[in-house]
Design a protein around this nucleic acid. Structure first.
Lengths: 148, 148
DNA sequence: CTGGTTTCTATGCAAGTGCATATAAATTGA
DNA sequence: TCAATTTATATGCACTTGCATAGAAACCAG
């Protein structure tokens, strides 16, 4: 086996820990304000950005890196809450379009006031513009698709 | 609300995405090799490092950032598999010591051959030593404890 | 066309997680 | 010393996630 170097192991550990820590803090803020989890927010935001506030489940999955079955049930719950609506996909009866509702847009906006502030507090304030840019660049390298 | 800057939002998004992506890839490797999840590994590794391969649940929690109730049940499962053993804590009957077994040590080592290789493949190979160091330094800033 | 394959979404069941709370022991403070 | 509080771990119950697979429509090869 090719042992990872100490520097690599350390960075890997920190990535896990930092993500867990910051996500934990931010989720706690959202919950404290009576809002649902980041997953809900992610879906709402993606939909809002989509054409006419609509995307297929597949597109959402890809955008937010959810499992298919997982998203399917998340959409169930969001639909029950009136945040999204499933409508037929023209020309392909297998697919569907998920459309954000007015209530969904409103929730996304209200959540953002808390979420954005939390990002600042737990993330932005600790980095500064230049460092944020460096971090983005480094993390991007991890996202490159596999090319065995 | 203090809007986070574009650079901060981007870095935040990448942190989530990179973590999810790399963890996903590595978990898939482990599962493919017939091993349990990273959580199990984390606990085994912490225990192995502890004095005589022993730690209290509290210490493990703090090390791996698990919820108390969550760890309690994870230890149940690991104990059933013979990977750890719960023993009394001398002088305090509330506490306990969790001790890694021979089977636990063996599993940790076998997992490392797959895990270490995966860290290299999905993480180390994409960064290089210097960048790994930079990434560590940046992520450390996110881990500082809250100081309102 | 048509039978086999692929794509898209949903779902039964098992496993894991979160929340609230229980249980028990130690500590604190009057 | 002993009642109240705090600390450490476990657990009932609901909710969420993972796994495997179903069901249905579209696509593809001959």
């Amino acid at each position: 086996m090719q042992e990872p170097s100490a520097a690599v192991i350390k960075a890997w550990g920190r990535l896990i820990r930092a993500e867990r820590t910051v996500v934990g803090r931010i989720e706690a803020e959202l919950k404290g304000a009576g809002f649902p989890s980041l997953h809900w927010y992610d879906v709402l935001l993606e939909l809002k950005r989509g054409p006419n506030g609509r995307l297929t489940p597949r597109q959402i999955e890809e955008a937010v890196l959810f499992e298919q079955y997982n998203l399917s049930r998340l959409l169930d719950r969001m639909e029950v809450e009136g945040l999204v609506r499933r409508i037929p996909f023209p020309g392909d009866k297998r697919r569907q379009l998920v459309e954000i509702t007015g209530a969904g847009r409103a929730l996304q906006e209200r959540m953002w006031t808390v979420y954005g502030a939390a990002i600042n507090r737990f993330f932005g304030e600790r980095l500064g513009e230049k460092e944020a840019g460096q971090l983005s660049a480094l993390l991007l390298k991890l996202l490159q698709s596999e090319n065995t």
